[in-house]
Design a protein around this nucleic acid. Structure first.
Lengths: 163, 163
DNA sequence: AAAAGCACTGTTATAATATAACAATATCTA
DNA sequence: TAGATATTGTTATATTATAACAGTGCTTTT
């Protein structure tokens, strides 16, 4: 569970995070007979460089700067691709996207979103997921996708008094 | 927990549901020194008449029909009011709104959303909430709001084979 | 009753997010 | 190389939500 805490512990080797995400991306793309094109790679990097979820329209200027076409469909397509690969998550409450810290081991997860600094960290929810699934099943419902988004305050923002 | 199942069991006295929501609305409004105006009452009824979440723009025609102004701010204001009162919930994944089945007893809850028929039912999550809070706290995060949205298939849609 | 204060609504405009539709190009496979 | 498929470019538009300010109508105080 340590990795879930990374985003709330400022200093860590973030470029290594990104490199590892890129490797996953290449491997997954290959396995699917698809390509990690320059646009997709750039979007992946951009999303991963931030611990705060980024909106699609925030990514456009960076695409333009890198010399790519930068109309909305371009970035939405890249994001859709990365979402399918499980390398990026969409935070529904923010209409924004974050990197998934553990693309290799897929586990049910939620997101802790600091309402002040917007820093977002993933939280392993395996321990709840099964019970939740059972409870839903008792009510006749078959869960296919879970979205858990927790808004609150991260440690750093709590320590600064100005709540 | 039976009430969580209501939406998935077609026949029930729905007008009674709505009447009870209206009573809550009147009581809560009074307690806050605010008014359950005709617009607010209508929006509450409309949202409650449906077991499927309704988008804000889906409500506008009904407002117009009832002779009210029907520009977006009107309906968003009414929804905001009802959200504050806890009589309505916003389903973030759908950008849409549903009635809260139990406005009196506030408890942490999630929503089961059928991806086929869009019927949505509330699920009591008290039993998970505390553990979740503790787990987040260990990571330094203080949860203030939980959003749990479960997409899947309801019983009726599972019984019809055409998944 | 007048006036002040507040809650509520009307109205116009626009922001922010997301997708449709089709044309053009690049890459892969036979 | 040709044909099929994946990817990108481009234009237009749909969908969801809010800003800003003017007007209206209660209600409370003097």
């Amino acid at each position: 569970m340590l990795e879930s805490n990374i985003a709330f512990n400022q200093p860590h080797n973030h470029s290594r995070c990104i490199e590892s995400a890129l490797e996953s991306a290449r491997a997954l793309s290959k396995a699917r007979g698809q390509r990690l094109t320059p646009i997709r790679e750039l979007v992946l990097k951009l999303v991963w460089q931030s611990h705060k979820p980024l909106g699609a329209y925030e990514l456009l200027p960076a695409l333009a700067e890198a010399g790519f076409n930068s109309a909305p469909p371009t970035v939405y397509r890249a994001l859709e691709y990365l979402l399918e690969l499980g390398l990026v998550h969409r935070i529904s409450l923010l209409n924004a996207f974050v990197g998934c810290p553990e693309p290799q081991h897929q586990h049910p997860s939620g997101f802790m979103i600091c309402r002040k600094c917007k820093t977002t960290a993933e939280l392993d929810t395996s321990q709840f997921s099964q019970d939740l699934g059972n409870k839903a099943k008792e009510l006749g419902f078959l869960i296919e996708e879970e979205t858990l988004e927790l808004v609150g305050l991260c440690q750093q923002c709590r320590e600064k008094q100005d709540v």
